[in-house]
Design a protein around this nucleic acid. Structure first.
Lengths: 243, 243
DNA sequence: AAATTCCTTGCGGGTTCCCGCAAAACGCAT
DNA sequence: ATGCGTTTTGCGGGAACCCGCAAGGAATTT
């Protein structure tokens, strides 16, 4: 059995490699990589049965790696080991996990015991193991009423990148009013209309357009890394439409 | 000699405690805490000569802790050990470090050797030790032309929290036009006026108000943690002005 | 005292945004 | 086909925002 580990923090990498070896004696080859790109290359050279991924890595994230791996080898077992239980990542994962795949999600803050159980569960027992804290977010993310639809999420991304209504309309191929409408739904979904927002005597305190970014970041729907990824996509699109 | 360590990640905490002990034999007491609040309490109980702080901690950050410590004991030697070389933190630090203080700044991504040298340099040699990568940011941060002034930074925070012009004016005790003026300077400083931003055929692609948030996050002037802190301050202020 | 720099303020107008209303379009199940 | 819910579109008005111009303050420098 061969195991691939991708994790940018040296300390954590060494730690989880040690744990993995101690828990799974029948692993005869462990490859460690410090970034997503290296992980992809290693996997391309020769596929692995089992993979451990950190989600938050520069350039190529753990989600990107998993997506690439599962697209060719959907039976690969992957354990995500990450700092955050942020929706920005969870959303990414649940969208790419194949029906047949076995995977796990463990928080770095969890005790070592939980990590061991998860590794055994996924790699030996072939069962899905997901930390409770993450499970909560996953539920919310799948919940119809509170979850953002795809179009709403697109709108959130666009507005967070600083685009104007016109630009959003052009990018998403809808009318100006269509783009504004999407924004309106987004504001509503994130509760900007409700009066949980106190108003001062001078009038409304919040600008929906900027406030929505703030609450989205607070809820973990967005984060700096995700934004960086989206910025790159945006620049691509800009170049295309320029020419 | 007594040493206080505050770091929320267990693995990193154990690691740096070990390194510190090996490098400084004459340390007879080491106290480890997992969050900023506990660090403050420990210090209050009995002051330490030497402190190691992680910057990014929930609730009470390393910057908060350092500020509190230095306000009473400006001769305390502090080594910051953190993931990021983000301006959001650097700015906070350079503003609170007393003239007489000896401190260090080491990135977690740095090799162990650098960490050891820094600990010795600060705690034994009583010299300031700052990683090169951080130094670069610090320079930029002190550079007149590219650095944000205090008022500009306030404006950035307010707009990122989603406040309207009116609300900003009220909060900062300036006229409406004053608030708008500050925003204008901010946009200019972050280069939103320059044409490095490609425009599509439909007109201007970017909304200054939202775009400024995006570029500020990309440059590390802001991050999710800092925003959370500021959000709390804002809520405080809102409650006060309500009554 | 004069000059310089930085920040603030009022005015004005052009633009963009926010959103209610109503009609049309689409998917989808009965 | 007939409904039903979701999404899109146009219209229009009121509010908020962006910013050039010009006229002060205030603090520091020369």
């Amino acid at each position: 059995m061969r195991l691939l580990i991708s994790e940018d923090d040296q300390l954590h990498r060494a730690f989880i490699a040690g744990v993995a070896k101690s828990v799974m004696p029948d692993v005869d080859e462990v490859i460690e990589t410090g970034n997503g790109q290296a992980a992809l290359e290693a996997f391309q050279a020769e596929p692995f049965d089992s993979v451990i991924l950190d989600l938050q890595m520069p350039e190529v994230t753990g989600v990107d790696v998993a997506k690439s791996i599962w697209s060719r080898h959907p039976q690969t077992r992957i354990v995500f080991w990450s700092n955050y239980s942020e929706e920005a990542y969870i959303r990414g994962i649940t969208r790419i996990v194949p029906e047949e795949a076995v995977y796990g999600y463990v928080l770095k803050s969890a005790p070592e015991e939980r990590l061991k159980l998860a590794l055994q569960g996924v790699f030996i027992g072939e069962q899905c193991v997901i930390d409770r804290e993450v499970r909560g977010v996953q539920q919310r993310s799948a919940n119809k009423v509170s979850a953002l639809t795809d179009t709403e999420f697109e709108a959130l991304v666009d507005v967070s990148l600083g685009l104007t209504d016109k630009a959003i309309a052009a990018r998403r191929h809808v009318s100006l009013r269509g783009a504004q409408s999407r924004l309106q739904f987004l504001y509503q979904k994130l509760g900007l209309d409700k009066s949980d927002v106190p108003c001062g005597s001078w009038g409304p305190s919040f600008n929906s357009r900027t406030r929505v970014i703030s609450v989205a970041m607070a809820r973990g729907l967005l984060n700096a890394d995700a934004l960086k990824q989206e910025e790159a996509k945006l620049q691509d699109w800009l170049r295309k439409t320029q020419s």
